[in-house]
Simulated assay, not measured.
Amino acid sequence: MVTRPPSTEEIEAYAATFRNFPRPTSAQLLGFEPVEIDVPGQRMVIDFVATDRMLNPAGKVQGGILTAMMDDTMGPLAHIMSGGKMMPSTTDIHTQFFRPCDVGAYRCEARVTRMGRTLCYTSADLFNGRGQKVASAIQTAMMLPFAPNGGK
């Protein structure tokens, strides 16, 4: 079945409801707080908070946590850009780390690189509270049909 892509108006209407979505426990753990959704620019900004529960043995934020912050920005962006009709399932994520990270505030900026009917390519940059880039990621996600509450 071939479906048409959602219009910009449909995506913007769906994006406007995003702040009211229930937060999954992983997002709660990461301190997930939406900042900006730029539909025409296919871009999203989310703030996160790293706590002392996220530290590795060296006393720095564990790299998987930083990757999760970027994943938790790229995934919702892909979902929103589908007008809420598709849910991304990550098939590949590649992360580069640039500096050790401490407990504190982080901001992630994600962009859609290309969105097709079945695959979405995104990228993200993660910044610490001083505005320094601490990590970047690129992601490929398979877009699967989405029905809220299992279609019930």
Score class of each variant (00 low, 15 high):
V35E: 14
D71L: 11
G129W: 11
D52F: 03
Q42D: 02
I11T: 01
K133I: 10
D72G: 05
P40R: 02
V49A: 09
P100K: 14
R53H: 14
H94D: 11
Q62R: 10
I93F: 07
M70A: 02
K60L: 13
D71F: 11
I11W: 00
D125C: 15
F18I: 00
G131D: 02
G31K: 09
F48N: 05
V61L: 04
N56M: 07
P57S: 12
A27Q: 12
A78W: 02
I37N: 00
F21D: 03
M81V: 04
G83E: 01
P24C: 11
A110K: 06
T118Q: 15
I80C: 00
P88C: 03
G104A: 04
F18A: 08
L77P: 05
T113S: 15
K133R: 15
L119E: 03
I93L: 12
K133P: 06
G131M: 09
V35L: 12
R107W: 01
G116A: 07
V134A: 12
D125Y: 10
R114I: 08
C108K: 01
T67V: 13
T17C: 00
Q28R: 15
P76D: 04
Y14M: 06
E12V: 05
T95E: 04
M74N: 02
D47M: 06
G63C: 07
C101G: 10
H79K: 04
I93P: 01
N56S: 08
Y106K: 05
V61T: 09
P76V: 04
G104C: 12
A50I: 10
T122E: 07
Y121D: 03
D92C: 12
S82D: 01
L55E: 03
F98Q: 09
T118D: 12
L126Y: 07
N56P: 04
A137R: 11
P88H: 03
E12I: 06
T25P: 13
G84S: 03
P22F: 11
M115D: 04
D72H: 13
L30Y: 03
T25S: 15
T25V: 15
G131S: 07
R111I: 13
F97S: 07
T51M: 09
P34T: 14
C101P: 00
R130Q: 14
S26N: 12
V39L: 01
M44A: 02
R114Q: 13
V61G: 05
G104T: 05
R99M: 14
P57A: 12
D52N: 08
T122Y: 05
T67D: 12
H94Y: 13
E36G: 03
